[in-house]
Simulated scan of single mutants.
Amino acid sequence: MKKLIVAIVLTGLLTNLAAQTKIVIKGIVKGDTKGYNKIYYFGDNVKEDSVVMKDGAFTISIPWEPGVVPFLYSEYDSRTMQGPPAFQLVPDGSGVIYLKVADITKGMFSGTVSGNRTAVAFHKFETGNRKLNEEIKAALEKRFPQSGKNDTNRIKALVQLKREKVLPYVTRFVEANASSYIGAYVLSRYQNMLTTADLERLYYKLSPAQQASVPGKPVGDHLNGLKLAAIGNEVIDFTLPTPEGDSISFSSLKGKYLLIDFWSSWCGPCKASFPHMKAVYKKYGGEKFEILGISIDEVRSAWLKELNNQQLPWPQVLDTKKVYISGFGVTGVPTAFLVGPDGKILMKEIGFDKNGNGQIEKKLKELFEQ
Rank of each mutant, 00 (worst) to 15 (best):
Y181K: 11
V299C: 02
A7N: 07
V24H: 10
V339K: 13
R79W: 02
E287H: 11
K271F: 03
L367A: 08
G293R: 01
G128Y: 03
A272C: 02
Y204G: 00
N45E: 05
L161E: 06
L4Q: 11
E126Q: 15
G115I: 00
R143F: 00
M108D: 08
A184K: 09
K365F: 01
V69K: 09
G268I: 14
K217H: 03
F262R: 01
I360F: 12
V166L: 15
K34D: 11
V69Q: 08
P70L: 06
T335N: 12
F274Y: 14
G216Y: 03
G232M: 04
S249N: 14
S94T: 01
R79P: 00
A18M: 15
E361V: 01
V101K: 02
W263H: 10
L187E: 08
A336R: 00
G351S: 05
P215L: 01
K365D: 03
A176C: 11
L72E: 09
G358S: 09
W314M: 08
G232L: 03
L312D: 01
P341W: 00
I62S: 08
G286I: 02
G93V: 13
G107H: 04
T112E: 13
G225H: 07
V46S: 12
A176T: 10
E244R: 15
S114M: 05
N308D: 15
K100R: 01
